[in-house]
Amino acid sequence: MTTVLLVHAVSLWRASLACLLSTDARLDVRATDKGGVHASMAECSPDVVVTDLDCPHSLEVLTFMESLRKPAAHAPALMVLARGDRAGDLRRASDAGATGYVDKLGPVDSLCAVVRKVAKGGRHIDESLAFGLLRAADVPLSPRELRVLALAAEGESVTSIASALHLASGTVRNYLAAAIRKTGGRNRLDAIRLSRDFGWL
């Protein structure tokens, strides 16, 4: 039996995805939102975590998964549901250690099989996402700059971003300044707009 932890902030989509995955008797599916991740991880020790990159708070889930990838630590595999036109999302998932990439706009017939494959240590990427993942390497912003800019895009202040990422406020300002310069934006809002246009955020 493969234990799956499905993380999604939208209850209807979370329930629908859980129902779809539960059609495979070899999958033991647990579902939660971002707030229940820590408790669910401790309770069920999942083999694989599945999340949707369009989901609110997906960045926080990816950050948490990345924090688990320490030497000699046993961390569950990470599989993401994504879109090919969001290179920034794909890059963040790659940085977090994702080994499964499924096109959320594609067919669902093989979803359960892919979950089992990734849970067993395999790798999978839908053909429709491959080009987007290659494009992710061309993103001029560093992973940290993208995280800071993504939080700024959600309306977070410099102080709250610094607290969330355990950084000094001055460091956050430096990351924002670098993001503005690298995107060619006039200011923070323009950098956010350009990054969204290019699919980095």
Rank of each mutant, 00 (worst) to 15 (best):
T2R: 04
T2V: 12
T3C: 03
T3M: 01
V4G: 00
V4D: 02
L5Y: 01
V7W: 06
V7Y: 06
H8N: 14
A9Y: 04
A9E: 13
V10W: 10
V10K: 14
L12Y: 11
W13V: 15
W13Q: 14
A15K: 13
A15N: 12
S16N: 09
L17K: 05
A18V: 04
C19M: 15
L21E: 04
S22M: 02
A25W: 01
L27P: 01
L27S: 04
L27V: 00
D28M: 09
V29M: 06
A31W: 00
T32C: 11
K34G: 13
K34M: 12
K34V: 14
G35M: 09
G36L: 05
V37M: 10
H38K: 13
A42M: 11
E43Q: 14
C44H: 07
P46E: 00
P46S: 02
V48R: 00
V49F: 01
V49A: 07
V49M: 05
T51F: 01
T51Q: 07
D54C: 10
H57I: 05
V61M: 13
T63N: 12
T63Q: 13
M65P: 02
E66C: 03
L68Y: 05
A75S: 13
A77W: 04
A77L: 04
A82I: 07
A82G: 04
R83C: 11
G84M: 03
L90I: 06
L90H: 04
R91C: 06
R92D: 09
A93I: 08
A93Q: 05
D95A: 14
T99K: 07
V102E: 02
D103Y: 04
G106A: 10
P107W: 01
D109N: 09
C112N: 11
V114N: 03
V114E: 02
V115S: 07
R116T: 11
K117P: 00
V118N: 03
A119K: 01
K120M: 10
G122N: 01
R123A: 11
R123T: 13
I125S: 10
D126G: 07
L129S: 03
F131E: 15
L134K: 15
L134Y: 09
D138R: 11
V139D: 14
P140M: 07
L141T: 06
S142V: 07
P143A: 10
R144C: 08
L146Y: 06
L146T: 09
L149M: 08
L149H: 07
L151D: 07
A153P: 06
E154K: 12
E154R: 12
G155D: 11
E156M: 15
E156L: 15
E156V: 08
S157C: 03
S157L: 08
T159R: 15
A162P: 03
L165A: 04
H166G: 01
S169R: 14
G170Q: 12
R173G: 06
N174V: 10
A178D: 13
A178Y: 07
A179C: 10
I180H: 05
N187R: 09
L189S: 14
A191Y: 08
A191G: 08
I192D: 05
R196E: 14
D197R: 15
D197L: 14
F198Q: 15
G199M: 06
W200A: 05
